[in-house]
Design a protein around this nucleic acid. Sequence first.
DNA 1: GTTGACATCCAAAACGATTTGGATTATGCT
DNA 2: AGCATAATCCAAATCGTTTTGGATGTCAAC
Lengths: 339, 339
Amino acid sequence: MKKATLKTISDESGFSITTVSRALAGYADVNERTRQLIIDIADRLGYQPNLTARHLRSKHTNTLGMVIPLTAYYSDQFFMTLLSGVGQQAARFGYDLLLSAQMRGEEEISAYRRMVDGSRVDGMVLARVRQRDARLDYLKGSARPYVVFGHADEDDYPYIDVDGKTGIRQMVHHFAAYGHRRIALIAAPDDLAFAPLRLAGYWAALDDLGLPRDPRLVVTGDLSADSGAAAVTQLLGQPDPPTAILACNDQMALGAMAAITARGLRVGDDVAVAGFDDIPAAANASPPLTTIRQPIFEIGQSLAQTLIGLIRGEAVHDLHVLLDPELVIRASSGKPRAG
Amino acid sequence: MKKATLKTISDESGFSITTVSRALAGYADVNERTRQLIIDIADRLGYQPNLTARHLRSKHTNTLGMVIPLTAYYSDQFFMTLLSGVGQQAARFGYDLLLSAQMRGEEEISAYRRMVDGSRVDGMVLARVRQRDARLDYLKGSARPYVVFGHADEDDYPYIDVDGKTGIRQMVHHFAAYGHRRIALIAAPDDLAFAPLRLAGYWAALDDLGLPRDPRLVVTGDLSADSGAAAVTQLLGQPDPPTAILACNDQMALGAMAAITARGLRVGDDVAVAGFDDIPAAANASPPLTTIRQPIFEIGQSLAQTLIGLIRGEAVHDLHVLLDPELVIRASSGKPRAG
DNA sequence: GTTGACATCCAAAACGATTTGGATTATGCT
DNA sequence: AGCATAATCCAAATCGTTTTGGATGTCAAC
């Protein structure tokens, strides 16, 4: 049995393809009896419109696109959680999600081109935006709607972000309130848009507190747990080592904790640790990780909702959303110290 | 500037649409000089083929489909990890992934129909198969290739699964070797295909060991952490409570651990706990969770690879893959006991 | 000067839907 | 009867590709 098309139903019912199409689409200019007849036949034949054909003609696909990085990120809970939020909200509005896992570089941009210029999606979600981001430049030049998770200071495009600068600043104050004076930062790669913002929050806090800016207390990692561990080795290996370490994401913080424990030190007591993101594993870590919460799932939902609004041409009021950071204090940052 | 199509290039170059198409597709029946001219123009105009049109004509989409459950979706690391594996391998072969997050029931099947009958995908991945699964019946009746994660005993379709029966059986033996005699099972909902298999492994182990089959030691959860906690309340509330608890997935095991700790008991020392899956959170839990490992990411890769093989009509040798379970012994299952 | 082989090109027919712009018939109102 | 109006229906164009089945021209061989 071949797949039923409008033509099949047309032949079967004696009405034209036009009328069949309009009957099923609910137009008013078809007789109710005719419509019922056509619907019955369609049901009987198990008719399902060929969406590819529909998309070609009608210029929209009810699909959101997202390209996720392939490099070693498969363990990245961040993207997975974000994806869940986007997918959940997209489904509520009847949208599907087209995903492409790509390595960074040439392949990545061509995945964007396939989706956008190839007319496969109605809009794009861009996560973890970078400085001078080629993907962003591309999207700006295209006519498709898009939304971004993250922002750089001066940027003008629809985004949602957590105020990382303030978050880091507050966390450094938290460490200081617990009596720490040598507070280290495991920074993020320069090319990420959030990296300079978080670094600025760190410097600002030191200035607030009248603490010196010591470049040896800043080590840059690559967001992986391993790089967090390597940073600890470097930080604790030098004279006058830090007593508190703040990592720019949880993955690195967890790596740092492992390395500290491996050195025979106790996280929280000997060295305080905090992260950024509040991924699920943060609460389950031992000791549980103090962190700056990003409501990633909710951000995903919000991104999808904004994007769909843009696609539908609705008046979207909040194109630039900067969420307040929320400090989640757990055991890894220790207790207030004497002295 | 409008989007460039074959027609644009045809007008620009003076050659017909046919020739332009064939030039870009690399057919031999076009002069090399002509081809180069056309390629240059295409590059200059930033030509990107309309994939929707291509798909309509050529009947395939280079896209794999997957419907994931919406319930408890965001907390479900299992699906996220699987998705990563599928996506990673799909990308290697030039395939994208079409995702639809759907609630169970009517919506779910219609998402399948949209993808498959709607000609949006070349093949489907079905995860967490159920007993008498309507989705599976649908896929069997469709002409599209598909692969399944999970199986029931007598089933005949392309699947990959971990031998859960043997896994559970071995874990019960592990508990027994540590001196436990009252070993409880937090079972999975009946309608999942793996539920009866794992239960059978539990009974088989008890028989192996000459232990009595006590129905009060089996509580069924719904795979969520909360249901694991509830099961603990029920199990430890009764006279002659179990000293070891084996949950049919890690999520429930983690919930169980939390409930045990909340009762003032120590996991591992007072009550041994084990799970199934080895999700990332299992290793990070405190104490780290003993579990039966499913290499979910690798299974995802393998599913994608098999599916793409089927799509391409290659001879796929291993349509039924049953992986050996791997016990991962960590601290939550305690130490061998005296007596 | 025919013939065949080869190289190069293209018009037109798909693919399966939506939409435009009427055509046809029946009805109501002077 | 004549005319406007409403209710139904549909042929054909369109979306942007791929593919089929030649058409045309050139050149060497006979």
